[in-house]
Simulated scan of single mutants.
Amino acid sequence: MSLSLWNNAKEQMLKEVNSWPYNFIESKDFPSFDRRGSVAGQLLIHDSYINEGVFGASSAYVGLAAPGDMGSWQRECKGYRFWTRADNQGNFLIKNV
């Protein structure tokens, strides 16, 4: 594979990533771009066996799902689920939800 093809593919991938979420989808299941937002926070852990205080959940996966009974997101296969990974201090950002 030539280097120019690889570089072109990377450029196209960045264009697609920056275009998300697409605004052409018209369905009640897919909120339009102007109805989306972001969720940010910090996931902290308090585990006295590991540390006396609280500490950031380094590299933890953070998920966002529709409201429901505890654990229902694991059984349900409909609706949106958004995932990201926390940084070393437990900070996370889920965009375009």
Rank of each mutant, 00 (worst) to 15 (best):
M1L: 08
L5V: 13
W6L: 15
N7Y: 10
N8A: 13
A9E: 10
K10A: 08
K10F: 04
E11G: 10
Q12F: 09
L14T: 09
E16C: 01
V17C: 01
V17Q: 06
N18Q: 10
N18D: 11
W20G: 02
P21C: 11
P21E: 11
P21T: 09
Y22N: 11
F24I: 14
I25E: 15
I25K: 15
S27N: 15
P31K: 13
S32T: 14
S32N: 12
F33S: 15
D34H: 12
R35A: 10
V39D: 01
A40D: 04
L43W: 09
I45T: 06
I45L: 09
D47S: 12
D47A: 13
D47P: 05
S48T: 15
I50G: 05
E52L: 14
G53S: 11
F55S: 08
A57S: 13
S58T: 10
S58C: 12
S59A: 04
Y61R: 05
G63H: 01
G63C: 03
L64Q: 03
L64P: 03
G68V: 02
G68N: 02
D69L: 06
M70E: 11
M70S: 11
M70P: 07
M70C: 05
Q74V: 08
E76W: 00
E76T: 06
G79M: 02
F82C: 05
F82Q: 02
F82D: 02
D87T: 06
N88C: 02
Q89E: 09
Q89G: 03
Q89P: 01
G90D: 03
N91K: 13
F92S: 01
K95W: 04
K95C: 09
N96R: 09
